[in-house]
Amino acid sequence: MFEARLLQGSLLKKVMEALKELLNEAAWDCSDAGIQLQAMDNSHVSLVSLNLRAEGFDKYRCDRNLSMGMNLGSMSKILKCASNEDIITIKAQDNADTVTFVFESPDQDKVSDYEMKLMNLDQEHLGIPETDYACTIRLPSSEFARICRDLSQFGESMVISCTKEGVRFSATGDIGTGNIKLAQSAKVDKEEEAVVIEMQEPVSLTFACRYLNSFTKATSLSKSVQLSMSPEVPLVVEYKIEDIGHVRYYLAPKIED
């Protein structure tokens, strides 16, 4: 059987928020290492990759590798029934066709369980090559969400240009042009508030705002976000999930044709 108990249930609620705008359904692949999910969005433009390590759970048991196809809309409805303070347990019998979510209130005076049917999803797993990125930018996640929201008013694409001085986000369209420049933080006193750039070579790439905005639904998971860029390879937008894992979004740059 499979059983994973997460003391900080709110993390799973936030993970749902990070996934459900882009994905309708996905397979949750469970092994003794933890839970992994990888899926392309409905238009097959972007890719989402989630990893939750077994060690991050209060209790984790996976007798046999298990892939649980879930409708994320339904799963989101069930997770909305959990309070932020609840302990959440996911469990399933081996080769079961349902999964059960158990929500325990902190003082155990209220225990809820919800059983959901599983789906048969065709397993398509993409190989993601190890890449040494030209630029890696770490910035406050709320800052990145604000930039994406503000600039997407100007155009459907955003140019992200990175040099060793800083990073510039630009968008242009019918109403005009917007530019936001973030300087590399001089002193890094508060880690999560800092803008830290590691640059092998300057890069300037164009991305579709609508996907970037969907990625920022993960903002509540982490105070900072990391953007990794190289010419002609997909951008990686990564949000760490406490000490248990991460969610990564991949999006190809737009190219002048």
């Binding site: 392309m40 238009s43 097959h44 433009v45 972007s46 890719l47 398509e124 797993h125 993409l126 190989g127 993601i128 090559p129 694409s157 164009t206 579709a208 390879v233 997909p234 991949y250 999006l251 190809a252 740059p253 737009k254 190219i255 002048e256 044709d257």
Partner: peptide
């Protein structure tokens, strides 16, 4: 115009 490539142009099926 700018073209949006899909992710499958970069990552191959395992």
């Amino acid at each position: 115009t700018v073209a949006q490539m899909g992710i499958l142009a970069f990552f191959t099926q395992d």
